[in-house]
Simulated assay, not measured.
Amino acid sequence: MSSRETHLVELVDEAGTTVGSATVADAHTAPGQLHRAFSVFLIDDQDRVLLQQRAATKTRFPLRWGNTCCGHPAPGSTVAGAAAERLGEELGVAGVPFVEAGVYSYFAEDPMTGRVEREYDHVLLGRLPVGTQFRPDPAEVARLLWVSVPDLLARLASDPETYAPWLGGVTDRLVTHLSERSPERSGGK
Protein backbone atom coordinates (compact mmCIF):
# COMPACT_ATOMS: atom_id res chain seq x y z
CA MET A 1 0.00 0.00 0.00
CA SER A 2 1.39 3.41 -0.96
CA SER A 3 1.89 5.99 1.77
CA ARG A 4 -0.87 8.13 0.20
CA GLU A 5 -3.32 5.29 0.91
CA THR A 6 -2.67 5.72 4.65
CA HIS A 7 -3.49 9.47 4.62
CA LEU A 8 -6.73 10.51 6.29
CA VAL A 9 -9.73 11.87 4.40
CA GLU A 10 -12.71 13.74 5.79
CA LEU A 11 -15.93 11.71 5.81
CA VAL A 12 -19.06 13.76 5.09
CA ASP A 13 -22.82 13.32 4.90
CA GLU A 14 -24.89 14.00 1.76
CA ALA A 15 -24.94 17.75 2.60
CA GLY A 16 -21.14 17.91 2.93
CA THR A 17 -21.09 18.16 6.73
CA THR A 18 -18.07 16.50 8.32
CA VAL A 19 -18.95 13.28 10.17
CA GLY A 20 -15.53 11.69 10.78
CA SER A 21 -12.40 10.48 9.06
CA ALA A 22 -10.95 7.36 7.48
CA THR A 23 -7.82 6.39 5.58
CA VAL A 24 -7.79 6.80 1.81
CA ALA A 25 -7.63 2.99 1.51
CA ASP A 26 -10.63 2.42 3.77
CA ALA A 27 -12.72 5.16 2.14
CA HIS A 28 -12.10 3.59 -1.30
CA THR A 29 -12.78 -0.02 -0.31
CA ALA A 30 -16.24 -1.24 -1.40
CA PRO A 31 -18.87 -0.19 -0.63
CA GLY A 32 -16.94 3.05 -0.02
CA GLN A 33 -17.46 5.90 2.41
CA LEU A 34 -18.62 9.34 1.27
CA HIS A 35 -15.70 11.72 1.69
CA ARG A 36 -14.60 15.20 0.66
CA ALA A 37 -12.54 15.49 -2.52
CA PHE A 38 -11.56 18.11 -5.07
CA SER A 39 -11.19 18.16 -8.83
CA VAL A 40 -9.10 20.97 -10.35
CA PHE A 41 -9.39 22.32 -13.88
CA LEU A 42 -6.62 24.61 -15.06
CA ILE A 43 -7.65 26.96 -17.87
CA ASP A 44 -5.18 28.68 -20.21
CA ASP A 45 -5.37 32.02 -22.04
CA GLN A 46 -7.15 30.31 -24.98
CA ASP A 47 -9.90 28.94 -22.66
CA ARG A 48 -8.61 25.39 -23.03
CA VAL A 49 -8.60 23.03 -20.04
CA LEU A 50 -5.69 20.80 -19.09
CA LEU A 51 -6.42 17.08 -18.84
CA GLN A 52 -4.11 14.48 -17.39
CA GLN A 53 -3.91 10.80 -18.15
CA ARG A 54 -3.64 9.09 -14.79
CA ALA A 55 -0.47 7.07 -14.25
CA ALA A 56 -0.55 3.29 -14.63
CA THR A 57 0.27 2.92 -10.93
CA LYS A 58 -2.92 4.67 -9.72
CA THR A 59 -5.09 2.47 -7.48
CA ARG A 60 -8.29 3.81 -9.04
CA PHE A 61 -8.92 4.21 -12.77
CA PRO A 62 -5.29 4.01 -13.95
CA LEU A 63 -4.52 5.31 -17.46
CA ARG A 64 -7.90 7.00 -17.80
CA TRP A 65 -8.02 10.68 -18.67
CA GLY A 66 -9.22 13.04 -15.96
CA ASN A 67 -9.27 16.73 -15.11
CA THR A 68 -6.01 18.54 -14.31
CA CYS A 69 -5.62 17.01 -10.84
CA CYS A 70 -7.68 15.47 -8.04
CA GLY A 71 -7.23 14.73 -4.40
CA HIS A 72 -8.61 14.80 -0.89
CA PRO A 73 -8.16 17.47 1.76
CA ALA A 74 -7.02 16.07 5.10
CA PRO A 75 -9.43 16.57 8.00
CA GLY A 76 -9.29 20.23 9.05
CA SER A 77 -7.60 21.37 5.82
CA THR A 78 -9.17 23.78 3.37
CA VAL A 79 -10.16 22.47 -0.03
CA ALA A 80 -8.24 25.23 -1.85
CA GLY A 81 -5.11 24.74 0.28
CA ALA A 82 -5.11 20.99 -0.31
CA ALA A 83 -5.72 21.49 -4.04
CA ALA A 84 -2.80 23.94 -4.30
CA GLU A 85 -0.53 21.46 -2.52
CA ARG A 86 -1.62 18.57 -4.75
CA LEU A 87 -1.19 20.65 -7.91
CA GLY A 88 2.39 21.29 -6.84
CA GLU A 89 3.00 17.59 -6.14
CA GLU A 90 1.48 16.30 -9.38
CA LEU A 91 2.43 19.02 -11.87
CA GLY A 92 5.01 21.24 -10.20
CA VAL A 93 2.75 24.31 -10.44
CA ALA A 94 2.32 26.84 -7.62
CA GLY A 95 0.50 30.10 -6.95
CA VAL A 96 -2.70 29.44 -8.91
CA PRO A 97 -5.78 31.01 -7.27
CA PHE A 98 -8.96 28.93 -7.42
CA VAL A 99 -12.65 29.67 -7.84
CA GLU A 100 -15.13 26.96 -6.79
CA ALA A 101 -17.54 25.99 -9.57
CA GLY A 102 -19.78 23.73 -7.49
CA VAL A 103 -19.90 20.27 -6.00
CA TYR A 104 -20.42 16.95 -7.76
CA SER A 105 -21.32 13.92 -5.63
CA TYR A 106 -20.86 10.54 -7.26
CA PHE A 107 -20.16 6.84 -6.86
CA ALA A 108 -18.00 4.83 -9.27
CA GLU A 109 -16.50 1.35 -9.07
CA ASP A 110 -13.26 0.53 -10.87
CA PRO A 111 -13.71 -2.88 -12.53
CA MET A 112 -9.93 -3.23 -12.95
CA THR A 113 -8.91 -2.72 -9.31
CA GLY A 114 -12.15 -3.31 -7.37
CA ARG A 115 -11.69 0.05 -5.62
CA VAL A 116 -14.50 2.59 -5.44
CA GLU A 117 -14.98 6.34 -5.47
CA ARG A 118 -17.77 7.73 -3.25
CA GLU A 119 -17.00 11.41 -3.24
CA TYR A 120 -18.38 14.82 -2.39
CA ASP A 121 -16.21 16.53 -4.99
CA HIS A 122 -15.51 20.30 -4.96
CA VAL A 123 -14.82 21.47 -8.53
CA LEU A 124 -12.12 24.16 -8.62
CA LEU A 125 -11.03 26.33 -11.54
CA GLY A 126 -7.70 28.08 -11.88
CA ARG A 127 -6.50 30.40 -14.65
CA LEU A 128 -2.89 29.83 -15.65
CA PRO A 129 -0.55 32.65 -16.52
CA VAL A 130 0.86 32.49 -20.05
CA GLY A 131 4.09 30.50 -20.17
CA THR A 132 3.45 28.32 -17.12
CA GLN A 133 5.79 25.33 -17.15
CA PHE A 134 4.80 21.89 -15.85
CA ARG A 135 6.93 19.23 -14.17
CA PRO A 136 4.57 16.21 -14.07
CA ASP A 137 5.36 13.51 -11.52
CA PRO A 138 5.47 10.25 -13.56
CA ALA A 139 4.13 8.31 -10.57
CA GLU A 140 0.95 10.40 -10.84
CA VAL A 141 0.66 11.57 -14.45
CA ALA A 142 1.19 9.60 -17.67
CA ARG A 143 0.46 12.45 -20.13
CA LEU A 144 -1.02 15.95 -20.36
CA LEU A 145 -3.38 17.31 -23.01
CA TRP A 146 -4.92 20.76 -23.60
CA VAL A 147 -8.45 20.66 -25.05
CA SER A 148 -11.23 23.16 -25.65
CA VAL A 149 -14.37 22.61 -23.59
CA PRO A 150 -16.46 21.73 -26.70
CA ASP A 151 -13.77 19.20 -27.69
CA LEU A 152 -13.81 17.71 -24.20
CA LEU A 153 -17.61 17.35 -24.30
CA ALA A 154 -17.39 15.63 -27.71
CA ARG A 155 -14.67 13.26 -26.47
CA LEU A 156 -16.70 12.33 -23.37
CA ALA A 157 -19.76 11.60 -25.53
CA SER A 158 -17.90 9.53 -28.13
CA ASP A 159 -15.63 7.42 -25.89
CA PRO A 160 -16.65 7.61 -22.20
CA GLU A 161 -14.62 4.54 -21.14
CA THR A 162 -11.36 6.37 -21.92
CA TYR A 163 -12.16 8.92 -19.21
CA ALA A 164 -12.41 8.81 -15.43
CA PRO A 165 -16.06 8.33 -14.42
CA TRP A 166 -16.24 11.64 -12.56
CA LEU A 167 -14.96 13.72 -15.50
CA GLY A 168 -18.40 14.16 -17.09
CA GLY A 169 -19.94 15.45 -13.86
CA VAL A 170 -17.12 17.83 -12.99
CA THR A 171 -17.09 19.08 -16.60
CA ASP A 172 -20.82 19.84 -16.28
CA ARG A 173 -20.02 22.02 -13.24
CA LEU A 174 -17.26 23.72 -15.25
CA VAL A 175 -19.59 24.42 -18.19
CA THR A 176 -22.32 25.80 -15.91
CA HIS A 177 -19.83 28.03 -14.11
CA LEU A 178 -18.34 29.37 -17.35
CA SER A 179 -21.78 30.02 -18.91
CA GLU A 180 -22.91 31.93 -15.80
CA ARG A 181 -19.83 34.14 -16.12
CA SER A 182 -20.09 34.78 -19.88
CA PRO A 183 -20.75 38.38 -21.07
CA GLU A 184 -23.92 37.24 -22.88
CA ARG A 185 -25.40 36.04 -19.58
CA SER A 186 -24.30 38.97 -17.46
CA GLY A 187 -25.57 41.75 -19.70
CA GLY A 188 -22.15 42.45 -21.20
CA LYS A 189 -20.58 43.51 -17.90
Rank of each mutant, 00 (worst) to 15 (best):
L91C: 11
K58V: 04
V12R: 03
A80N: 12
V130M: 06
G20L: 10
E109G: 12
P165L: 05
V49L: 02
D121V: 02
V12F: 03
A82T: 07
P31K: 03
P62L: 06
G92R: 14
P183R: 05
F107W: 07
V99E: 15
A74L: 11
L34Q: 14
P62M: 09
P165S: 11
D26H: 08
L153A: 12
Q133G: 01
A94V: 15
D47Q: 15
G76R: 12
S179Y: 02
E85C: 01
G188S: 12
P73G: 05
E117G: 02
A83W: 09
G71P: 06
V103R: 13
A74D: 10
H72R: 11
T29H: 03
V147F: 02
Q46L: 13
E117T: 02
D13H: 07
G114Y: 03
D172Q: 13
Y106A: 13
M1L: 10
T23N: 10
D13G: 10
A142W: 06
T6V: 02
D13T: 08
M112W: 14
A56E: 15
G16E: 09
G95L: 12
V79Y: 06
A22E: 11
N67R: 07
D44E: 06
D110N: 15
S158T: 12
D45T: 11
S2P: 05
P31F: 06
D121G: 01
R4V: 05
S186K: 11
A108T: 14
R115A: 14
V49N: 01
H177F: 07
L91T: 07
A15S: 13
E109H: 13
T78Q: 09
E85M: 01
E184L: 15
R64L: 13
G188T: 07
H177K: 00
E14V: 14
R86A: 14
R185V: 04
H35V: 06
V99G: 04
G32N: 08
T113N: 00
V79F: 07
T57V: 13
T171Y: 00
E109K: 13
P73A: 06
G20R: 04
E90P: 00
Y163P: 08
A37W: 02
T17G: 10
V141K: 04
R185T: 10
L42C: 09
P97G: 11
L167F: 00
E184R: 13
G114E: 05
A157Q: 12
C69W: 08
R118V: 10
L128R: 04
L63N: 13
E140K: 15
D159G: 02
A37N: 05
G76T: 10
Y163A: 09
T68I: 02
R155I: 00
G32Q: 07
D172R: 11
V130I: 08
L152I: 05
G66T: 13
D172M: 03
T176G: 10
L87F: 12
G187R: 08
P183K: 01
R155W: 04
G16K: 05
G81E: 12
E90K: 00
